[in-house]
């Protein structure tokens, strides 16, 4: 296996009933880089992302073929413990989904279920990851307030802190800025750029400009097929496939 690639997708196909949502996708995700999955809506971007932490399992009638190797281990192997897989990845969804509890408890939720009990360590962790998500200064004095009182932009950063608090290796973002105002979006993008120093980041986006701003690596999906992938500079400057070129110039969307 490739040492630079914490996630290797091998011949992955996903079926919803009879509908083939992903066709034989193979992709190596580079470590400590931002990989952007781009493509028109309905092309399978979110399906691909959710297949990585096995959130697809919660859908009815989904069949997955092929392999996803996480640090060399097949996450779809029957003996694989799904909660351990998910713990290695933090997820940012399209709309931030805070948990029905206080700001503090949202961040402490993950560490607690994974067995961290010490008050002192929990406090440290909550502060560390709220700082890392760039939210600490705004919430320092109101950690006991319900998380739902935060603005949407703050909620998304809280979700980031919550995901980071389980100390994952990988951050998954499913159009994480699509519900945010421009300023909050910029804030989240900035966090992601900082985080790639220590984490492998995979972001689904339908905003090409965003991919240009943040991505190191691009994977272009079209109708469930991985059409093209490569370093962002190359893909944007000289797309090899005519479909990629058509998408980048706005002919297909």
């Amino acid at each position: 296996m490739n040492g630079d690639s914490p996630i290797s997708i091998r011949n992955l196909s996903v079926l919803y009933g009879d509908h083939l949502a992903l066709k034989d996708v193979s992709l190596d995700i580079p470590a400590k880089r931002i990989t952007s999955i781009i493509g028109p809506s309905g092309c399978g971007k979110t399906t691909l992302l959710k297949s990585l932490n096995r959130l697809l399992d919660t859908d009815d009638g989904v069949r997955v073929r092929g392999q996803v190797l996480l640090d060399g281990e097949d996450i779809y192997a029957p003996r694989t413990e799904v909660t351990r897989i998910r713990r290695k990845m933090g997820l940012l969804s399209q709309r931030p989904q805070v948990l029905p509890m206080s700001i503090y408890d949202n961040v402490a939720y993950g560490p607690r279920i994974h067995g961290l009990r010490s008050r002192k360590e929990l406090n440290e962790r909550v502060e560390r990851y709220l700082r890392l998500a760039g939210l600490w200064d705004e919430v320092e004095g109101r950690l006991r307030e319900p998380a739902s009182l935060l603005s949407v932009g703050q909620q998304q950063r809280l979700c980031l802190a919550r995901g980071l608090a389980v100390e994952p290796e990988i951050i998954l973002g499913d159009e994480p800025t699509s519900a945010l105002d421009p300023q909050s979006s910029q804030n989240v993008e900035r966090r992601l750029l900082e985080l790639k120093r220590d984490y492998t980041v995979i972001v689904v986006t339908h905003i090409l400009r965003q991919a240009r701003r943040i991505a190191d690596h691009i994977a272009f999906l079209y109708l469930g097929e991985l059409v093209e992938q490569g370093p962002a500079a190359e893909v944007f400057a000289a797309p090899k496939d005519p479909r990629t070129r058509a998408y980048l110039t706005g002919e297909i969307s």
Partner: peptide, 27 residues
């Protein structure tokens, strides 16, 4: 309860039981 809320809990490594008791019941 939106599915995304259950997914949010699951993606942090919670079991279904933990999601049920700690998130769904509160929500």
């Amino acid at each position: 309860v939106p599915r995304e809320l259950k997914d949010a809990s699951a993606s942090l490594g919670a079991t279904r039981f933990e999601t049920a008791v700690k998130v769904l019941v509160r929500q």
